[in-house]
């Protein structure tokens, strides 16, 4: 069961924090299809936020097709956001690990690596950019 940690100082609206933390749990496999989300009452009792805030977050997750309420039972996860390509033993992760090791070997510290990755992410995921054809697509 997921437990939400809400940060009042973050500037991110509380219902969005609930949505984001649920999505994150779905990506990491902490929540899987069939799992039950805590009831609004349980979230409210732990976090002392308005019940409507929790319901608003759950409605948004429902609209995104990630969860569905079952009357009288609770709200359940419909599908996962975990990608097999990003799994623990996947080739993408292995390549990234090797790259991070090379960066460390070249003398970059954690912040340097994070800044470099963020910069490349911004560049490659900029709106309108599509990944080009893989170089070995014809071979």
């Amino acid at each position: 069961m997921i437990e939400y940690r809400l940060d009042r100082r973050s500037g991110v609206p509380t219902y969005q924090q609930i949505v984001q933390q649920t999505e994150q749990a779905l990506r990491l496999g902490v929540l899987r299809p069939g799992d039950k989300l805590p009831t609004a009452r349980e979230v409210v009792e732990l976090t002392a936020v308005n019940p409507n805030t929790v319901l608003k977050a759950y409605r948004e997750l429902e609209r995104a097709g990630l969860v569905a309420p079952r009357p009288g039972l609770g709200t359940f996860v419909l599908r996962s956001l975990a990608r097999p390509e990003a799994a623990e033993d996947g080739p993408l992760r292995a390549e990234l690990t090797a790259w991070v090791d090379r960066a460390r070997g070249a003398g970059l510290d954690r912040e340097d690596v994070a800044a470099l990755v963020a910069s490349v992410l911004d560049q490659r995921f900029a709106t309108g950019l599509r990944p080009g054809p893989a170089p070995d697509a014809t071979g």
């Binding site: 349980e42 009792e45 936020v49 308005n50 019940p51 409507n52």
Partner: peptide, 26 residues
Amino acid sequence: LSDAADRGTTVLISSHTLTELEEVVD
């Protein structure tokens, strides 16, 4: 709040500290 959510209670709650009830009230 959890009891109010269960039973649909209307709550009037006062404070002169504006931030205290920010996440509580709708």
